[in-house]
């Protein structure tokens, strides 16, 4: 079959565009977008994390300052947000590594694992976040 005849057989009523705010995304798409967002967030917050690492190892005074600093509600909130980003990024990352090995790439396990990644990350963030608050 040539390319020209293939083009003719395409259904005429195809969506001209996909409105990302209207169409419902499947779980793997949501998990994938969150993987990118969490990665970007972790990258943007790297200076904060390196700063905290430096402060915690500077001296016993620095360590005390570190503890006081991460005790501020706003800092705590940011760090719990980063905890979620880290957890989601890691669990989705493991899913990506398994996909690379052709494990769980069918529709059913693919959707189940994407949902699991989203839910486990949120639940673990809630549990650890409550513990650290």
């Amino acid at each position: 079959m040539t390319e020209a005849t293939m083009k003719k057989e395409r259904p005429k009523q195809r969506p001209k565009h996909l409105d990302l705010l209207v169409i419902k995304q499947p779980a793997p798409a949501i998990a994938s977008v969150l993987h990118r967002l969490s990665g970007a967030g972790l990258f943007l917050m790297l200076p904060l994390l390196i700063f905290l690492f430096e402060l915690s190892l500077d001296s016993s005074l620095g360590f005390a300052m570190f503890k006081a600093f991460v005790g501020y509600p706003l800092v705590k909130l940011i760090l719990i947000g980063l905890l979620w980003a880290f957890l989601h990024h890691v669990f989705m990352g493991i899913r990506i590594l398994l996909s690379d090995l052709n494990i769980g790439t069918d529709i059913k396990p693919g959707q189940a694992s994407a949902k699991a990644v989203i839910i486990i990350s949120l639940v673990l963030t809630a549990i650890l976040g409550a513990k650290l608050w």
């Binding site: 790297l46 390196i50 690492f53 430096e54």
Partner: peptide, 12 residues
């Protein structure tokens, strides 16, 4: 960031 983080490590 790499230089910063590594320098923290090398001061220990």
């Amino acid at each position: 960031y790499t230089g910063w983080a590594v320098s923290i490590l090398w001061r220990l």
